[in-house]
Design a protein around this nucleic acid. Structure first.
Lengths: 139, 139
DNA sequence: ATTAATGCAAAGGATTTGCAATACC
DNA sequence: GGTATTGCAAATCCTTTGCATTAAT
């Protein structure tokens, strides 16, 4: 979080709470869900603050913003950034979200960067389709 | 477009116009931009019709919906689906959108499907960062 | 004391929807 | 004639913003 401090950003109590909520969340939460959980620790926190904090963290590269194929509306989902990227598989059948990481994905990113001279800051690979179970059911 | 007919969907004049606009567009257009171009051929066409048609085409897998890293707002961009997927590089510096296709991307998709049993219907790989030129400038 | 962060309510932008009128087969 | 499609305006959802107040250093 030193990145934030360098920019003159204050690490307030609410921000600390939000960061911890994102980091400890087992699933991908949207702004409203984050607010609900954060409220358990700080009932005064407001949705606008959630959005403002998310914008900060996003710009510093501390979190990733996901669309998850817009399975339910146009909202965004958030997750703490990890060292190696993973992709998200969104099932159109049951709505499940699965994660998938692979060295091949890292390799592809490196190749794209090498081929194009593009300096990658964010990589988002999202796949929509049917999970194993739903694929069976739907013939 | 036979897919559409099978579903009892009528191929109207407006829909034909919209499909042709998307297919012939050199860039990725959003709903409002599509409307503007379609109006040149059918001045009576309405934004709601554009959205309704896009939903149809998307569900039939005839077009892809892109976010392009939300470089300018939360709108979506559309492109006709091609046989092989390509990824989109969005430059945070100059706003340029570049396309990149690679057999490695296809290979990754096949591997993900094989590993997970997931049946991929849509694949979207979007990268945000700095293009070659902007990377130079920003040190 | 200064400056950043917050709450609140209002505004904003993109997309969807209800319904009566219209076009299609 | 019956059904799908359309236009229009209103509604909805998600997100952002202005401004007065509060908290942080």
């Amino acid at each position: 979080m030193d990145e934030l401090v360098e920019r003159g950003v204050r690490i307030t109590r609410q921000r600390r709470v939000l960061i911890s909520v994102i980091q400890n969340s087992p699933t991908h939460l949207d702004a409203t869900a984050l607010l609900a959980i954060a409220k358990q620790q700080d009932s005064g926190i407001n949705l606008a603050t959630v959005y403002r904090t998310l914008a900060l963290l996003k710009n510093c590269g501390l979190i990733d913003e996901l669309d998850l194929m817009h399975l339910e509306g146009e909202k965004h989902y958030y997750e703490a950034k990890t060292s190696s990227d993973h992709c998200h598989l969104a099932c159109f059948g049951c709505g499940a979200i699965m994660e998938y990481a692979s060295p091949l994905f890292e390799k592809l990113k490196r190749k794209i960067a090498a081929d194009s001279g593009f300096r990658i800051r964010v990589a988002r690979l999202e796949l929509g389709g049917l999970c194993k179970q739903c694929a069976k059911t739907t013939a």
